[in-house]
Design a protein around this nucleic acid. Structure first.
Lengths: 214, 214, 214, 214
DNA sequence: GATGAATGAGTCTTCATTCAT
DNA sequence: GATGAATGAAGACTCATTCAT
């Protein structure tokens, strides 16, 4: 009976190997970057040997690419999410940006994904391109949609940033970069930053009079 | 006489060698990152051989560090500059942020410096620390100074962002990141971005009434 | 009943496994040579996995040796055959050499066997030695027997080649080598070659007068 | 003075390195074949380390190819040589075949070259092709020329082998193969073999009648 | 000062072999 | 019997670093 269970566990283990390896790869690549990470480092993090990695992934390059694919969860859901927002447009944009914070500031995977894009982009241009297609473009469009709807509804003034939503939303990136740089060493007060960010841009976007006219 | 001149030129050349090497190193490290750059790549960019590099720099690590030092031009001048700004606080903050754009968006050296901080930070923690001390802290303080003065003068409302100026200024980082990612491939309209950014945050900061009271 | 049949087939299959493997091994070793052939290549040619090969053969080395044994069909029969030849000695030597052509020129197994002897000889000296004992020596002796009998019968002159039959028969090797080198790419007209070969050596061996005396 | 000489020697040494390496490569590749030879084996035969080999040759493959080129001395000279032969056609063909013996039987380089063609041909098809173009074709043509001239002069009968000279000359290959197989272990009496070979084919080719009188 | 031949530690990758299932 | 995941030794190749010239 115990033996049976163990057998089951082993088989289960094997089925999980690829995931385990990809997650170990993520950690190692995050720590040292693509070039400086040894396949053996990944292996010993999983508790196996080099050969096992190569049993599942043809090359280190391939391992990296698949790891990227594995940790990438497209913004598509965010985009969908954005459409389901309700309430005033101020509330909507606030909730939308909150989603963004949850992703690129709070979620380590997404943040490190961005780091990979910056650090390994020249080695893996497809990664940059995919990231652009799947994350950046949908995100910008969703932001613009909300802002434009807010303008149409008279809640926001027709600010320049409506066409260039990054200019309003972009401070998020500053915090993201701080996180990447100092991670634990100089912890940021994310909530305070978020509130300050919202405070500035909502004041900056909201139409001054009740009618939405400036 | 001719000999002298030649010697003079040669001597001059030699005196410049270290600079030349550091600049070549910058280009190569930018292109491939620290690990993937070969000392020989740097050498052939200068037009010398490996050995020459080692005559001037003990190790590749050293070369990298000195290169960083060489391209780093502290924000100290910016900080000083910030104090000399005149005009309305809106104009001052606008001019101050303009300086920032000129540095981290427009100036390749500073931008790539930031990339090094992100990409090689774990290998060269001192670089991150120095960057923090010399760039980030002074810059944040200068920003805060202007904002606080603007509040004191009644021109700005006492927004949350006064204490966390990154929340107002941070969109600059978004553009900087775009530049790093797409450099030439997807050129950005920096001026439009800047104007949109200013438009949002100035509207977001300026006190609504003459008194500065909201 | 059905079950029995299936078992029968399966059992039959299994009984043939070793042969199947040896034949697959032959093809693979021919294609890539001993070192470059992977045990897995052999396995997938049979349609099994690595492990199965190791069930039947202890090591790759062993597999090679047994494969050699399997495809080696000693010349002993030829030697016997030679003794049963009848007709004029010209006809006998012609028929004998014909056998040789059938083997080392036309029969792929024997030809590739020779290639193995040439290519892997230093790795498997026993193979070379066995080949020498079982193929070359008997063959030379059979040839010498025929030639000597032909001389005794007065049909052949007592040429130097009677003691060194390779000197008469050896052109066969030239054709064999061409086959090894160009196999399909530059097909040889074996019949024409054979006739030309016979023509030269029979004219070269036959005694000039009716009596067989020179 | 001694120092100067040593300096000279060192420089000289360096100039010779590529040759030294190619010759060491030849020996190692002969001994173990392409796949089984380690670059380090070649290096230690020269008395240097791996790295040095890679300083001169990009890859092991390249090393092999260049080694082949280095030891290949085309038959072109033989071909020219064949045209300068004088004397009876029997003497000419004898001298021509003698040249062949000197090359493929006696000259280790040429013989091992043939072995490479047989053993590594599938890995280096260009080598086989070059060998065919530069050695085999010219050699066959030269042989045919002599035989045809001998027929025209009435010295040789119009044997089938005139069109297929390999059939007459080919026994050389048998001896060559023996040499490859047994090298030192079973030394051959090359002279006796040569004489037996000549004896058979000259008797086989010379015209029987009064004009080509034997 | 500059060169570039040489070194050797380090890394990716392959593959014969094992063994739990 | 058969499978295929796992191992680890081995080999190609790279590159920071040295040093004789």
């Amino acid at each position: 009976m115990l033996a049976k269970k163990q057998l089951g566990q082993r088989a289960q283990r094997k089925a999980q190997r690829p995931q385990e390896i990809l997650e170990a790869a993520f950690e190692e690549f995050v720590e040292r970057g693509y070039v400086a990470t040894r396949v053996e480092d990944v292996a010993s993090r999983v508790g196996v040997t080099k050969g096992t990695i190569y049993f599942y992934f043809d090359t280190k390059e391939r391992l990296f690419e698949e790891m990227i694919r594995h940790i990438s969860v497209p913004f598509s859901d965010i985009s969908a999410n954005a459409k389901n927002l309700s309430g005033s447009y101020s509330e909507r944009i606030r909730m939308f940006i909150r989603l963004l914070y949850d992703r690129i500031v709070m979620d380590r995977n997404t943040r490190e994904m961005l780091r990979f894009v910056l650090t390994e982009g020249s080695r893996f241009p497809q990664v940059v391109d995919r990231h652009h297609e799947e994350f950046i473009v949908p995100f910008k469009e969703a932001a613009r949609d909300i802002l434009e709807a807010g303008v149409a509804a008279g809640e926001f003034r027709n600010a320049l940033a409506v066409k260039i939503p990054d200019a309003a939303i972009g401070a998020t990136m500053m915090l993201c970069v701080w996180q990447m740089l100092f991670e634990d060493r100089k912890p940021q007060d994310v909530e305070a930053f978020f509130e300050a960010h919202m405070d500035v841009i909502l004041h900056g976007l909201i139409a001054k009079d009740g009618t939405g006219r400036e």
